[in-house]
Write a protein that binds this DNA or RNA. Structure first.
Lengths: 341, 341
DNA sequence: GTGAAAGCGCTAACAA
DNA sequence: TTGTTAGCGCTTTCAC
């Protein structure tokens, strides 16, 4: 309870120097492995002193003199609700780590005030840059104060052309998902898309149409249905779907597919025998454990985080416009070959 | 590309002082609102200079002189796989924020080396303390290096009695879940528990038995089944369950309940009419969108994070042993009243 | 009321 | 090969 319980005045470089009988600069050199040539025994004495005393460098002092920290700020809008943000953080963390940087994470849960204060706190800590991320792919207004140090948008983008962004390749994902179905011989592929306009909605549709075109199949608007992007949406679409000639369905996301499974099962229909299904997102907890396990296309959240820090650190070749990250297909068991006719 | 693009030498307190025609100490006083009596006009000149110059305090310098940072470290073992860690982070973040602290997050994804380096990096940044958290409730060995500054375990605990911990009240949760069923008149309540020993398994079983006892119902071991704690487990349990007299089932977690729903549906049985079901965890994405929506008991991850920082900051009365956080029941629509007999 | 000055722990010239 | 020294940006006595 009293002021220095457990704190016992940290040992500093000076203490080490004194113990080793050398100067602080010598200690500094051995600690940092600079190219200065330090004598064998001086080095050894220092090393010994370091671990006898349990010396641990003070990162704040170091950063102060170097003028910049090894921090990368990550502000996320919804860390709590889905695993998505977690995956972005994870990817960013790993990459940052690899380059000797540390993540400062702030969650704003949509609160603008929290966001402003998070950003300002990060700036005060002289972060190397800030990753601004959203839990679903969308356009954002870059908050004031950002762009001051380097900013990169992750899983979102801005009309403000000068701020870099990395986003999932929705269209490529839509294309690949559709291809998974086409490759099994399906000709009537329905698409349960969401109703609300969004990069996901438009992008995936584009990809779907492109895949159809490549396969020489005419686009049939009657095969794309508007649904709520949740279990309920997939479930509700079943009657209409069964009235259509579709033998395969591309769902806007895994949750829709889950609802679809349910509706089908209620009617004694089976996936994939009666209908082949492919999802989008690859939400492990859901997709991998449905019956049958759901083939889908993964939203590359980790990669988004990783690439985000790479562009922040200038490791990625500059590109005009957002960097689109590939959404890799995940093959499981919800797709069967179309009946030959 | 060149060394100081965008960096333009940060404006310091000295710049502000010069601009305002006062000394740095005066600036410091107004910035920090110390109780020093600063004249009206000096104060105003300083404030004006601050925002003309766009001054922003350097947190590193400040921390250096104060000797301690406002950082709280949070090391998590699995931020990516589930939303669980995200909720802990969120809770911790909010509480830390409220007390003027910032979260330094590191994810170790089970890797011991990463963990050690994360901890050491946090220590170098002179964090106020470290929250060590796991994504599922379990016993851990406190990593070396921890306990040096204040450490608190979140969602885990250690035999090492001296390190504080905050964990979910599994037994209370098991009790309440069972009660939800009992309250509707069910007398034969099955329990689909996991097989692997764990605090969750033992705790929930304890709670289940306690609730039964309170209701004057004899414990029937034949009503507790061992299943894999996933969809597959719930699904596989259906035959045995149907052979039992159970009219209600308490599932080890929501995923098991999800598999159970599936198996039941395959047999044309309906929840809750044919069988009442209650889960555990309250995984939103799943539980809230099943058909019918699943009644369950929530794992209080946010609260765990929040309480974690509270005990770290010494805001929580000390307690012997881990602090058990309540798991609140979430009523949805998977429970029906038992048939009167 | 306000300012001068001494550090916080460390790095980086530069001297020796 | 090693030591001296001047800061990094800020807080905080202590004088004036």
């Amino acid at each position: 309870m009293n002021k220095d319980e457990g704190v016992r005045r940290a040992v500093t470089m000076r203490d080490v120097a004194r113990e080793a009988g050398v100067s602080v600069s010598t200690v500094s050199h051995v600690v940092n492995n600079t190219d200065a040539r330090i004598g064998q025994d001086a080095r050894e004495r220092v090393l010994r002193a370091i671990d006898e005393l349990g010396y641990r460098p003070n990162a704040m002092a170091k950063n102060l003199v170097k003028g910049s920290s090894r921090f990368i700020g990550l502000v996320a809008d919804a860390i709590a609700s889905t695993p998505f943000a977690g995956r972005i953080i994870h990817g960013a963390q790993e990459e940052a780590w690899q380059h000797g940087h540390v993540l400062l994470v702030a969650n704003t849960e949509g609160n603008t005030a929290a966001e402003a204060s998070a950003i300002s706190m990060m700036l005060e800590h002289k972060v190397r840059g800030i990753l601004y991320s959203t839990w679903y792919h969308r356009e954002v207004a870059v908050p004031a104060g950002l762009a001051a140090p380097d900013t990169v948008l992750v899983n979102c983008f801005s009309a403000q052309a000068d701020v870099r962004a990395v986003v999932p390749d929705e269209s490529g994902g839509g294309h690949d998902a559709t291809r998974m179905l086409l490759d099994q011989g399906h000709r009537h592929v329905a698409f349960l898309n969401t109703r609300a306009p969004s990069p996901a909605r438009e992008g995936r549709l584009l990809g779907y149409r492109r895949a159809l075109a490549e396969a020489g199949i005419a686009y049939d608007p009657g095969l794309v249905f508007q649904v709520r992007p949740e279990q309920e949406g997939g479930f509700a679409a079943v009657p209409a779907l069964l009235r259509s000639p579709a033998t395969a369905v591309f769902c806007h996301n895994d949750r829709v597919a889950m609802g679809l499974y349910d509706g089908l099962r209620d009617r004694g229909l089976r996936v994939p025998d009666d209908l082949s299904v492919v999802g989008f997102d690859n939400q492990e907890v859901i997709a991998a454990h449905m019956r049958p396990p759901l083939s889908t296309v993964a939203l590359p959240h980790e990669e988004l985080g990783r690439r985000g820090v790479r562009v922040l650190l200038g490791l990625e070749p500059a590109e005009a416009g957002p960097i689109a990250v590939n959404c890799p297909p995940v093959h499981r068991r919800s797709i069967a070959a179309a009946e030959p006719r």
